[in-house]
């Protein structure tokens, strides 16, 4: 690792920001069309973020300020490890476990900051968000452990390389459909989309953790959300959809998966948090267990 790696890493961050923010903007348009509206311009999300950053904002104590910076820093650090197609800023460090752990830094920073605001809605939102995280992470990790057992690797580019050998039929979503289904459901939970968005629920707990953020702080949260989405969707693209042999292939897959999740989100109502946890521990966890057992005992689907 040298200076060039760092420069690449920051280039990657810029790319991730532009990519995800554009796709969010396009998705707002898609959702508008779904609801028979005209919708905002595709670069509306950029305007929103820059506008939020241009406003003044209030502090609620140093934990509040520090937590936002820590969350943004943690998520940006995570995003640096993600390979984009064949490109990698920090080669050899794209291990799933590194990503999962560094991602938690961002989540905890966010939780710390929101609790530091002292607003009861924020505390409720944070507790719901962490409960939700516990719910989707367990089925997801069970599936991932099965895949690691099958392929003897835990690096994202390793997974992508193995899948690319077999063409579309080599993708893990085809080879392990149960695990793929669990991962897609977990992704919905990770992204905080409906039906698993009870922790931001604007109408009942006034947007939860974000309740006391305004101006610059809110702008940083929006940035954070873009990077977080980038990391989470990228995980799925690499592990289940064969990554990308070229950057273009990767971007197309990424956009299609995110748009699909968004459309699914917009036709579903919202689970209560206890319903979400019960659901995750019943259906996806059972499917994940079956998938892992199939892999370990019968080797079904392993190339």
């Amino acid at each position: 690792m040298n200076l060039m790696n760092l420069i690449y890493a920051f280039g990657l961050l810029l790319f991730a920001f532009v990519l995800q923010t554009s796709i969010t903007g396009i998705n707002r348009k898609v959702i508008a069309r779904l609801q028979r509206r005209r919708g905002p311009r595709w670069f509306q999300q950029f305007i929103d973020i820059f506008k939020a950053l241009s406003k003044s904002s209030t502090s609620h104590g140093w934990i509040f300020d520090f937590g936002v910076v820590m969350a943004l820093g943690g998520i940006m650090a995570t995003a640096m490890f993600i390979p984009i197609g064949p490109l990698q800023a920090l080669p050899g460090l794209d291990n799933i476990f590194i990503i999962a752990y560094v991602l938690a830094v961002g989540m905890l920073g966010m939780a710390m900051s929101a609790s530091g605001s002292g607003n009861p809605w924020a505390s409720i939102g944070v507790s719901r968000a962490l409960t939700n995280m516990l719910a989707y992470d367990i089925p997801f990790m069970v599936v991932i452990f099965g895949l690691i057992f099958a392929y003897d690797t835990s690096s994202l580019s390793g997974f992508a390389a193995i899948q690319q050998e077999g063409g579309i039929l080599g993708w893990n979503i085809i080879r392990f459909p149960l695990g793929g289904l669990v991962a897609m459901i977990s992704l919905q939970g990770m992204l905080g989309k409906k039906p698993f968005d009870s922790f931001i629920a604007p109408a009942e707990i006034a947007s939860g953790p974000m309740v006391e953020y305004g101006g610059r702080h809110l702008g940083m949260l929006f940035l954070l959300h873009e990077f977080q989405t980038f990391v989470e969707v990228s995980l799925i693209v690499h592990i289940f959809f064969g990554g990308g042999a070229t950057v273009l292939e990767y971007v197309v897959k990424y956009a299609l998966i995110y748009t699909f999740m968004n459309i699914v989100s917009n036709i579903l109502p919202r689970f209560k948090i206890d319903q979400a946890v019960t659901f995750f521990y019943k259906v996806p966890l059972a499917l994940a267990m079956i998938q892992s057992l199939l892999i370990i005992v019968t080797g079904l689907g392993v190339a």
Partner: peptide, 8 residues
């Protein structure tokens, strides 16, 4: 928006 802090 959900709260006055976020609103313009």
């Amino acid at each position: 928006m959900a709260t006055p802090r976020q609103a313009d």
